[in-house]
Write a protein that binds this DNA or RNA. Structure first.
Lengths: 187, 187
DNA sequence: GTCAATCGTCTTTTATAGTGGACGCCAAAA
DNA sequence: TTTTGGCGTCCACTATAAAAGACGATTGAC
């Protein structure tokens, strides 16, 4: 699904908005970080302007991405299938904690497949979720989930709806790896 | 050497010019193919304008490249070391003819390392070089080089300076692979 | 309820991206 | 030599990208 000649304005619009909202930034905040006026960012996100290379460079700089990567992400905007082989996976070399992004890029609803080795503890700071709605579903093994002051003991098949943002900790109290899904929707 | 926030105008300028000249296109020809005025293309190549996303989309379309790829190439513009592992290599599955681009992208002077299996014949049409200056240096083995009507027999260490563009043929008359270098400068 | 703060959009003005055409500059040919 | 044609740049004009600030809507605090 390579796009070789369509006007990139719409794809860029969606991608910029996604990157901004994923960071929980308002137009004003992105404007300050990038040096691009918020009026212009607003227009870009609504496809009412075709940003210049200079402006795109400032925006990608604010996101900490090379411009070509921002554009590559933009071109993937309308993909609907995320083949297993192409899903980004990250493994913590120290603990063996593995995290796989299941959903196609850009989805409103994001699914993450996590594998937590026995005895491993993963903190999850409150600041990391500017999300509106988040659930945790245990596929196999056991999970102790600390949500602020509360501690939840989850077993295979359990599903937990998260409350307002607080510091959390994932912990696997069992002898086998725990596999669970994090499902979240943005704003 | 990822570029995360510099203004991309200069890198784009160089890359557009390279892509255009590599295809032997004049400003007018690229203008017609892309729908961008040649005055604008001229400005872009001389860093006197920051092209909009729409214009970049049209240009990359004319080149047959996804926009993100054009930008990725642009970001590599000032690389000065081309590590062996990153040099693009192409092998003809039928003949075993192998061609490796030695020089960093974008150089004025380009070096190509070619390996030609015994008995293999590779034609090289005149249209393929809009280059001003081109030399062939045999590293090992023997090479029969037909340049238009003339036939040159080259042995290890020989270096041939090419004349004006004509149809050429590379041929390995020996029993072992021939390895030679093509060195060329544009314009 | 009021007030204040913040958000995204809209308005006005300026800077500049983009176009079409004229121009000067080599080449190669007559 | 002059001519011719193709090339890239420059010029004048138009379209629009970009900035700065005003505006209405929403939200939370009191």
């Amino acid at each position: 699904m390579q796009q070789v000649q369509k006007d990139p304005v719409q794809a860029i619009a969606m991608r910029v908005k996604i990157e901004r909202e994923a960071r929980g930034w308002s137009l004003a905040e992105l404007a300050e970080r990038s040096g691009v006026s918020k009026a212009m960012i607003s227009k870009i996100e609504r496809c009412e302007a075709s940003p210049t290379a200079t402006v795109l460079g400032r925006l990608s700089g604010a996101f900490g991405l090379p411009l070509s990567v921002l554009l590559a992400l933009a071109e993937r905007v309308q993909e609907r299938i995320a083949p297993h082989a192409e899903q980004p996976v990250w493994t913590d070399p120290e603990t063996g904690y593995t995290r796989r992004a299941i959903s196609p890029p850009n989805s409103m609803l994001e699914l993450i497949d996590v594998s937590l080795p026995p005895g491993v503890r993963v903190p999850y700071p409150a600041a990391a979720f500017a999300f509106q709605h988040q659930q945790i579903w245990v596929l196999s093994g056991r999970l102790d989930f600390q949500e602020g002051a509360a501690l939840h003991h989850l077993s295979e098949g359990d599903c937990l709806l998260l409350g307002p943002p607080v510091d959390c900790v994932f912990f696997n109290p069992g002898k086998i790896p725990t596999r669970y899904v994090v499902a979240l929707t943005r704003r």
